[in-house]
Simulated scan of single mutants.
Amino acid sequence: MRRVIFLLIIGGAGLAILIGLGTWQLQRKAWKEDLLQTIEVSIAAAPAALPQAPVKEQDRYRAVTVEGEIEGNALHVFWVTKDAETGYRVIAPFVTTDGRRVLLDRGFIPAAEKTTSLSSGQAAVTGNLLWPDEGDWTTPAPEVDTNILYSRDVAYMAERLNTEPVLIVARSAAPEAAVTPQAVTTAGIPNNHLQYAITWFSLAFIWAAMTVYFLRRSRP
């Protein structure tokens, strides 16, 4: 009898925990979907003027439009497109008409065109503010001699190019240059909570089946 009670307690507790984790992941899924929808609205909103003092928490993904001058010196961030093409994102200083210096992600160039000179000078740019979360402890250090970075570290790039720590990711620019804009999207933001929920519920089913199996074996 004690064995049966023990199995019921362990089985019930484990089942409750696993079902709870699955339910929590479904709640997280709903939260993530709402978040993605909010981000998509921000990305697609009508572009406005660049805020005087952008704040990451409230201005991330904000659509902006700026006019000014693209400077010729640029940083190259190693990149692989969704089509598995390797190349670089071109990050250049942008001087607005009111004298502010910010970072501009002009877009993607193939690796073979790294040494190709891109047009600079007066331009009108529409894009989105972004503070990318790309680097971690495994990210290689920047290669200063070859001008290759491995993440868009806004603070580092701003220091290198003497700009504000503000990054505009272009979705269009006039005049156009030999660079492909890589507009901000939600495609890179993971939403795997449904898979996690299925995993927890599957484990709950297995746990329940094992509990029933051992209970039957415990019968006299």
Rank of each mutant, 00 (worst) to 15 (best):
Y156L: 09
R89S: 00
H76G: 04
D145G: 13
S151C: 07
M1A: 15
L8C: 14
I189N: 00
L18T: 02
G12T: 03
P190K: 03
A124I: 12
K114Y: 10
A209P: 05
T199A: 07
S120R: 11
R3K: 14
A44P: 12
W200L: 02
W79L: 10
P175A: 11
L118G: 01
Y150I: 09
P110M: 04
V90A: 09
I168K: 02
I19T: 11
W24A: 04
A123Q: 07
A208V: 15
A209C: 06
I206V: 15
E159G: 15
A63N: 02
L18R: 07
A30S: 12
S202M: 13
R60E: 15
D98K: 01
N128R: 08
W24V: 07
T186D: 06
T211F: 09
L7R: 02
G121D: 08
F201V: 08
R152D: 01
V4Y: 10
K114C: 11
L130M: 12
I189E: 05
N128P: 04
Q52W: 05
E33K: 02
A74E: 09
G12A: 00
S42P: 02
L18Y: 01
T86W: 10
L203P: 03
A124D: 12
W31H: 10
I91W: 07
A112H: 15
T139P: 01
R160P: 07
I198V: 15
G121I: 00
F94R: 01
E113G: 09
N192Q: 06
R100Y: 02
E69V: 13
I9H: 06
V102F: 09
G121E: 09
V144P: 04
I5D: 11
A209W: 12
A209H: 05
D105W: 08
P165I: 04
D105G: 03
Q37G: 15
L21F: 05
E159V: 12
P220C: 07
